Computed example of a mutant assay.
Amino acid sequence: EQASLSEQRGSVRRSAADIIVATPGRLVDHINRNSGLCLKQLRFLIIDEADRMIDSLHQSWLSQVVAAVYGSGAETEATSLFRRTEVAFITAASLSPPQMPLQKLLFSATLTQNPEKLQQLGLHQPRLFSSVHSSAAGPTQKQDHFHFPEGLTEYYIPCQMSKKPLLILHFVLRMKLYPILCFTNSRETAHRLYLLVKLFGGVQAAEFSSRLSPWERKKTLKDFEQGKIQLLISTDAAARGIDVTGVKCVINYDAPQYVRTYVHRVGRTARAGKAGLAFTFLLKVQETNFLQMVKEAGSPGIQKQLVKPENLKSMEDRYEQVLQELADVIKDEKSRC
């Protein structure tokens, strides 16, 4: 890895890459350990999923990267036509010799406009660009007010905790809304639901979480896109930064606690102008707060959808049998750990 980032030229080791794609932690690791990795000529710093990056700024990775860009170096200053100093107020003196600024480009579907958080990024004369043509994208836009896909239709389904698995089976076996991307709030819930659906039978299901290796996750996503999987049960590992094509329906098996999580989840469908459905299972105690949260976030409207008990009744006997089988499977898994 180090060899691809720098190369030996005579007695000097120099950077060999024009573009580096890295996680913050790994980049900082190379800055500290790889003496040949020089960022003093870096022109563009692109931060994807910027809202999550801002939340991790307590780790000081950004300040370390900026320090590597503007750090002093006698050799660099002597051979460069440009001076590198952190941007401040522009004066005639500051432009001689010419400056070579570092431009930061932030991308996110849920980028905060909270000035206190944005201040941490050290932005100079920032500009906001939106891919959505809307008056809401102007400077008067409220904080934590987001854009939802135009083709997205949102529903919530009042339910009891014990009926959630039956509702998932109803969506796949009766309503045939697959391919479905189903989100849970933990990998334990995702795994338990996957085992339950698998034991019930009749559904091509898979799980997607940190339980799987990177290779297994890549293969699972490929199978899902190819239509080999009807129901993909996932943690929020698939909610960000992964473009899964052909998702007809997103189901929030567990209601997300934060509105940003909801926006990223439902954004996996209705992509590139296509239509998509999003369903959220809500317990009675969750309804008021969740609906208020989504409304304040800028949702065009989330509709109530009822599933009649008689629509689930024919599956209940098999479901009760599966619950007993599931207890044995989980007990066996724990004994092997």
Rank of each mutant, 00 (worst) to 15 (best):
S94P: 02
M53F: 10
V28K: 07
T280P: 12
T245M: 09
L118T: 07
L37C: 05
Q321N: 12
T261A: 13
K222H: 04
A16S: 15
V69L: 06
Y156D: 00
F44N: 10
I242E: 05
N34D: 15
P115Y: 12
V197G: 00
D48G: 06
K304S: 08
Q160R: 15
D144S: 14
G151C: 03
F89C: 12
V294C: 01
L105Y: 06
T235M: 05
G10Q: 06
L118P: 09
Q204D: 15
R13D: 03
V266P: 05
V307Y: 06
K218R: 15
M315F: 13
M100N: 10
R271E: 04
Q41E: 11
F171G: 01
F129M: 11
I168D: 00
R83D: 04
N114L: 12
L45D: 01
R271M: 05
A50G: 06
T280M: 04
L312F: 01
G10E: 04
D51I: 11
R26F: 09
F107R: 07
C38F: 05
E75Q: 14
K284A: 14
G122N: 10
A278H: 01
A137I: 13
Q230I: 04
T76Y: 06
L5N: 08
L123I: 06
S60G: 01
Q64T: 07
A239M: 07
V285G: 03
M53W: 09
P139E: 13
K308S: 12
R33N: 13
R336H: 14
E316F: 12
D243P: 05
H30A: 12
K142V: 06
E207K: 15
Y155P: 01
E150R: 11
A16Y: 12
H124T: 10
Y178T: 04
H133G: 03
Q321L: 12
L45P: 05
E86D: 02
A50M: 04
P97C: 10
I90M: 08
A3C: 08
Q226W: 04
G273H: 02
I31K: 05
E296D: 14
R240P: 05
G227N: 06
V21E: 04
I54A: 08
L291D: 02
Q59W: 01
G227D: 04
E207F: 08
C182K: 00
E316M: 15
H170Y: 13
F146R: 02
S60E: 05
V329W: 03
R192L: 13
L128V: 15
R211C: 03
K284T: 15
Q226M: 14
L37K: 10
L128Y: 12
C38Y: 01
G241Y: 13
